[in-house]
Design a protein around this nucleic acid. Structure first.
Lengths: 399, 399
DNA sequence: AATGCTTTTTTCGAAAATGAACAAAGTAGA
DNA sequence: TCTACTTTGTTCATTTTCGAAAAAAGCATT
């Protein structure tokens, strides 16, 4: 008999595969597990009874499919373990705790100095996690893992590569800093990649195995998902759509190049253009609100941004040929006008399917379901649930 | 006891996995197989003795690693089966036959009318294959598969999507046409994807599991390889680098968009520009020769093409973040001047690694090892060896 | 209520894969 | 030449996984 921790982390053993398959989607039927793990019916059945006996898996419901014997809906025992997700944001930290049945148990937020250090962050997160765990009546050592979402590319060993938002953090190994404080497995990923995991787990991409996500927010990021796996590339830089160089003579970008997509359609830039033109500083929420209401200047800014964004997505399509695009971030909340402009521009910048081509040869466009920075925190939780971006585990347990 | 054919095609059985692992790299040691298949040493050992007993696998050599017991080099029995690769080109067809130890047994070429039909092609290929097989003293029914390389994107079910080079072929299901004539498993892929397989199997990408290939030839294509798998995308369009739209007001492209990379750096266009400027039509071989010798006008054309190509590769890097770029196609034969220009432009158009970053955070650039259209035919063979792009198998054997 | 149909779930003997211990085959240095 | 060390290859009892058949649990029609 093994504990949930071992099962959860075992990459090869069938029992582990089953547990993680359930963790990934929250609840599942045995038949679904047969498909997603590739194991034999009998194997799944046997292991499932064992897992039920040891209290790791629970029957939660019974689901009829119209015909035939109804199937049992299974879920991991919520009491068997918990996962935490942490968003390390600009002057703020947000922490969510979930059980293994995907129920959010705690979701808190607190402000930080804008120049907080990794050590500050780790200490604050630890204090806060201890407090929250106490409220939930569990011990912090029961956490199966903590996921960190960072607004910067992260290398495979947990180092922050390009401190564009948090410049002083560049070069820090964020994973080891947190591992030392928290003493449990740490998973690190960049913010947009977390967003994709959140959409796969709770949002617009549930059940999708292949898609590309564009996140239009203050910055522009994205994620490439192939076979349900978020691609990280050789160094963790993959899907930095905001820094596709679209115009070699365009505006200078914070990354050091010119004419990046972000300089045309990034939120920071749009806000600056708006302030320059209308003389009044606005928040991104105000900006989105005015653009949605059709305020001419703002609408035009969004229109132009959509034009460039569609171009970028066209190029991404030419390279990756995904069946689905998910459009996320605050700019997506502008609604139809942004999405339509984007699709129109996309059509002009991607290889046109031949005239007789069936509908399915065009990619689908879907707007993400998360608002605010929910996608990021929840994605950080999903990091643990899906055992993605795992980095440190051999730290001594917090005393 | 099972025949090589079943083993070769069985996707799940360990024996099949071992056979295909050997087929993919030509010859291997048992330890390599343990790593690449993920099976236990004991399993590999047991199955290997069985495979040797049935004559499928042979000991070919013994390799010392300096320390420890030397390992046996294994190879598939060349007499156990053969694979054919077919290039369906512009006014020409090329066919290669290999044994399972990667030895080329036959490599022939013949001209076709420029407007030959798929049926013509299938009949000619069949006649030629029968002849070649007879010369080799084997029966055509012993072929383990035939790979087809096409100068156009191909869908998963073998349909030609965009007949840019062979316009009348658009919409044909090339796989079923050939399957009917040849009566053996057919594998279809687009030309550039085949090129990547050839480089992985015999060329510059041996041992590489992740890379991006750009092929600069008369057209521009490419391939994305992740975990040793050539990515096809949702519809088989993936890695159409030639049609990245770099300038919305640029020249019209045959794909219907403007300013595609191909309109700036594609061989067809370069030849046309050269003819317009120097009044004399040249072949691509002549063009490359003159550019390599530093002939000013040609050198400048190549320089400008490298500038745009580097830009395109920069964008691809921002999206995919590969550890390695392979540069293939006739334009690569121009040499240093093209490659250097390309790398220089790349550096200006991709996210710059921070100043302190280690060398390994930059992608490597390597020139492909194949010349002419060797990569394409050999890639078509590799299609079969690696069981990639498999489409038809249930056709009735040719009578 | 009974029967047929469909899908899920379990059971159980057979087959496959594994881990651990051992044997083999080489190098390097005493 | 002998011993220590390293890596490869084999054997076999134990454990794991599978396939096929049977049992179970619902819906729909008669």
């Amino acid at each position: 008999m093994v504990g949930i921790r071992e099962l959860f982390e075992d990459q090869t053993a069938p029992a582990g595969r089953i547990v993680r398959a359930i963790a990934a989607i929250g609840s599942a039927t045995a038949t679904q597990l047969v498909k997603s793990t590739g194991l034999a019916r009998s194997t799944v059945s046997t292991l499932l009874t064992e897992l039920k006996d040891s209290g790791v898996v629970l029957d939660v419901d019974t689901k009829s499919n119209g015909f035939g014997r109804p199937s049992q809906l299974l879920s991991l025992n919520p009491a068997a373990g918990r996962c935490a997700g942490v968003l390390l944001g600009l002057g703020e930290i947000r922490i969510a705790i979930c059980d293994l049945a995907h129920t959010v148990l705690s979701d808190i937020w607190f402000a930080m100095d804008t120049d907080y250090t990794p050590d500050d962050a780790a200490r604050c997160v630890r204090a806060s996690l201890e407090e929250q765990c106490a409220l939930l009546g569990v011990d912090m050592s029961e956490l199966l893992g903590v996921g960190l979402a960072i607004s910067a590319p992260v290398s495979y060993d947990g180092e922050i590569l390009n401190g564009s938002i948090l410049p002083t953090w560049c070069g820090t190994n964020i994973a080891s800093v947190f591992s030392e404080q928290l003493g449990c497995p740490i998973h690190v990923e960049n913010e947009s990649h977390c967003g994709a995991l959140a959409e796969m787990t709770w949002g617009a991409a549930v059940g999708e195995t292949n898609f590309v996500l564009f996140k239009f927010d203050l910055g522009i990021g994205g994620a490439i998902v192939i076979d349900s796996t978020v691609q990280r590339g050789a160094h963790g830089y993959a899907a930095e759509f905001g820094h596709m160089s679209l115009d070699p003579r365009g505006p200078l970008c914070r990354c050091g190049n010119r004419g990046c997509l972000e300089t045309f359609a990034g939120g920071f830039q749009l806000l600056r253009y708006a302030e320059q033109s209308f003389g009044e500083p606005v928040s991104i929420e105000q900006f989105v609100e005015r653009a949605r209401n059709g305020d001419p200047g703002y609408a035009r800014l969004v229109d132009d941004a959509a034009e460039m964004a569609g171009w970028g997505m066209g190029i991404a399509f030419t390279i990756l040929n995904p069946p689905l695009f998910i459009i996320a971030g605050k700019l997506a909340e502008v609604g139809e006008s942004f999405i339509n402009g984007l699709e129109r521009s996309f059509a002009r910048h991607s290889v046109a399917p031949p005239a007789h081509s069936p509908e399915k040869r065009r990619p689908r466009f879907v707007v993400g379901t998360f608002r605010g920075n929910d996608d990021t925190v929840m994605g950080a939780v999903a990091l643990v649930l899906r055992q993605h971006g795992r980095i440190a585990n051999e730290a001594s347990p917090a005393s």
